[in-house]
Amino acid sequence: MTNRFGWALADGWTIARRDLTHWRMQPGPVIFKWFFPVLMLLMFGALLGGAMERPEGQSYYELLVPGIFALAMLFGLESTMLAITEDAAKGVTDRFRSLPISSTAVVLGRCIADLLDSVVTLTVLVVTGLVLGWRWHGTFAAALAAFGLLLLLRFALLWVGTFIGLVVKNAQSVAMVQVLVWPIGFLSSAFVATSTMPSWLGAIAQWNPLSLTATAARSLFENPDTAPASWIGDHAIGAAVIGPLLLTALFLPLAATRFRKLSR
């Protein structure tokens, strides 16, 4: 491995492993983070599930579990953002930037670590979902594709998180973003079918990237979706690919520019 790309990969992996060491050294916060979506699942499933109108013989979990998967990807935004602001505040970012490694490696490291983190989050959620009676009814390959789409959403949100993390810099603004994540999470089809919302709100919620991925995942899992017939509902899988790619196309350059701006 003598070329630049090879080194960027190797250095990126070294930096990602730092996060894995963090998990080992300080398991508390990360375990909490992994189980938080489980808490949401139980809370919404058990507390509100009874009140949800569902077609005969259909469990609310059929709708909710894929929604929570997508929601967990959204929450990942916070952990990316926090990691970025932490490293900037502690001077670790500057230390990386003064080393003979490429900035690609630094970003790649964050990317690998956060995707691994999401894989664990999803695994914990899948196990919980299965225990609660949720199943995928389609093929295993289709289920894998659904997880692929979920991780793609996480990948896109990584750049949003990196960008915001580089912009806000302080813990107070981070807290504000953490609060704002909630309405974004609720204004989607994660918890309820958008058909139950006032039509204008339902339309917005349908186009929420979170809903796109949730709807696509439900369709790949062959979990019944009560989305009203709509153009976006019919093209859910394509939308769940294109939506995150658009987000990436917008925020990856923004994040990269912002990273370079650190030297202004």
């Binding site: 250095d11 730092r18 963090h22 502690k90 001077g91 670790v92 230390r95 003064s98 080393l99 003979p100």
Partner: peptide
């Protein structure tokens, strides 16, 4: 960057990991 070391105004080490892990990390990098 290949020829310098920088000790910034505020200690820039990863506080979660150990001293040894910090040095190995930066050695690898």
């Amino acid at each position: 960057r290949r020829r310098i070391g920088l000790v910034g105004q505020y200690a820039a080490v990863d506080e979660i990991i150990t001293g040894r892990q910090n040095l190995v990390l930066f050695g690898r990098l």
